[in-house]
């Protein structure tokens, strides 16, 4: 059965007809063609599908499409504004925190949420926050460096 949902994605309102048994991940990738949201495992394990739902990170592979009715969603495509990258994105580029890039969108979204609730996280807090984001390439060290650098850059701008 199909449901009509109204929701906001990256600041833009949408009204869509979605199948009950489809996930938010499928809707974002297949109906809205936001392919920055990755499908790694469809089982809540890898974090590649992480998006912000009402400001908090969730695994979009475990959210049913009709559950997104009324929600505000942010995907990696929504992090940059007016061609200006988010400080986290800048830091990932500068630190070389991306290799194949498959995990990067989910890690950026989850790190954005971390810095929103904790502008000055310790190494341990970064590791704990990112435990649900698997990266098969980088070994994580540069990712953690990048999150710290972004936190630092952000505090410089808005102390």
């Amino acid at each position: 059965m199909n449901h009509t949902i109204h929701f906001t994605v990256n600041g833009e309102p949408f009204t869509l007809s979605v199948a009950s048994h489809h996930t938010l991940l499928q809707v974002l990738r297949e109906q809205l063609v936001l392919t920055g949201v990755k499908n790694g495992c469809e089982a809540g394990e890898c974090g590649a599908c992480t998006v912000l739902m009402n400001g908090e990170p969730v695994n979009s592979c475990l959210v049913l499409a009709p559950e997104a009715d009324g929600a505000t969603i942010v995907t990696v495509e929504g992090l940059a504004h007016d061609s200006q990258l988010d400080p986290l994105q800048e830091a990932f580029v500068a630190a070389g925190a991306t290799q194949c890039g498959f995990c990067t969108p989910g890690i950026l979204i989850n790190s954005r949420a971390l810095l929103d609730r904790n502008p000055d996280p310790t190494d341990a807090e970064i590791r704990a926050a990112l435990v649900g984001n698997l990266c098969r390439c980088t070994g994580y060290i540069r990712i953690i460096d990048a999150v710290k650098a972004a936190a630092h850059a952000q505090r410089e701008v808005q102390p």
Partner: peptide, 9 residues
């Protein structure tokens, strides 16, 4: 339990 994202659901 699990990860921060999962604990939000």
């Amino acid at each position: 339990v699990a990860s921060y994202q999962l604990r939000n659901r």
